[in-house]
Design a protein around this nucleic acid. Structure first.
Lengths: 225, 225
DNA sequence: TTCGTCATGTAATGGGTTACATGATTAC
DNA sequence: GTAATCATGTAACCCATTACATGACGAA
């Protein structure tokens, strides 16, 4: 049936874990929390929500009536659906959170995974951060050798582009190093449960992993309700 | 008929302008010249090449036999097609080069456009660079306000991500500033014609515009033949 | 009453990858 | 002889966007 999307599924589950929401608001949150990395349109979000409901991870509630109402049919008025995470959904999300395999540090996933680091265990965080770092280091290596081999064939602009590219990757590696450092140094943000409330530790420096290429409409979307 | 792709078409035309090539080699060049930004698989490239031939921008030549040979049918041996830019193709490419509209500075296009800056006039270069800069400045503005509005709702990691994201964009803006500066300062690389040969001017600093999000297989491809 | 924004959806399309099928040529 | 890499292609998907259709609600 309908659309799934992996990363979107993950993000939706993660956001709904904090509190139930309309699809509409969900999208706004998505486009600011994950902001620079990804944006999703309704054409992606709504079908995905339906699929998540079908899987039992979410339930729909019509805005006024709590719990059991099967959504649709409410005095003829239009939908207005609030999505709420089910117990199964929560469990499923926690499983997803625990995965720290290779795709967790690929470009498209890493940013989103990072955005939900606050809900993961430090173990997972470390594995993901280190995975990404070595990923980028390989990339850097490949860039260096391929640059060495074809430097003469490139004109100034191509070269400049290449250089800036490498520097950006290098910069992300430094960021990761700092993050890893400060993870090692013992911060131990709540391994799994509940939402934001402790904003103590800090001392990291940063920069972004990478912001997505695709022609995001650069969401003029806002955040707060 | 077959697939077009805009940006791929542009890049292919641009590379073939320097010299005729096999599809195979074209792909390698694509994945190193444009390296960090985009990568294309054969499933994208070959159909696109066929489409370009159909449009008359390219002609196919079978590897040994020069000029007129209609490709296919050469003692039963397998294809081995060399693609060569036609006069019409060259003209078309120059038209594309001259466009400096908004999409030239969108994420997906900008990198590729920049890679071929050596073949554009300074006017176009300036417009594209300035366009991108103001594009990023808008984005920055939006990030700042949306961050201001929802800072409290975000946990440390989300915040950190946001910060790194902004810094990356800021960094690209600085890079663009330097490039614009040095364009203004009068370098005047050959407005249009021919390929790389003068690698005199320099003195720019740099960094990359942005590397594409999508799960590129991180092309293990090499460059030189 | 009209405008903005909240709110939900879908069909058409775009742009791309993966996996596969096939085979030639080169280097060891 | 066998592995790597050169070389060309295609069909089946995947993920997402665009543009559209529909409508409620609040504020000016």
């Amino acid at each position: 049936m309908s659309r799934r999307s992996g990363i979107l599924e993950f993000a939706v589950l993660g956001l709904l874990r904090e509190s139930p929401m309309h699809g509409y608001e969900l999208r706004k949150r998505l486009n600011t929390s994950l902001g620079v990395f990804r944006a999703f349109s309704y054409g992606t979000l709504y079908p995905c929500l339906k699929a998540l409901v079908a899987s039992g991870w979410l339930i729909e509630e019509t805005d006024g009536a709590p719990e059991g109402v099967p959504a649709a049919a409410l005095t003829g008025r239009r939908a207005k659906i609030v999505y709420r995470l089910t117990a199964a959904g929560k469990e499923h999300f926690e499983e997803l959170l625990a995965h720290s395999g290779p795709d967790a540090w690929e470009d498209e996933h890493f940013g989103v995974r990072f955005a939900f680091f606050g809900q993961t265990s430090r173990d997972v965080r470390m594995r993901v951060l280190e995975g990404r770092r070595s990923r980028l280091e390989e990339r850097l290596e490949r860039m260096r050798t391929s640059l060495a081999r074809s430097r003469e064939r490139m004109d100034d602009y191509t070269l400049e582009l290449q250089r800036h590219g490498m520097e950006s990757v290098e910069r992300e590696v430094r960021w990761l190093n700092e993050l890893i450092e400060s993870e090692r140094a013992g911060r131990d943000q709540r391994p799994t449960d509940s939402a934001a409330q402790d904003k103590n530790q800090s001392g990291d420096t940063g920069g972004l992993p990478r912001h997505r290429g695709g022609s995001r409409p650069d969401p003029s979307d806002d955040t707060t309700t």
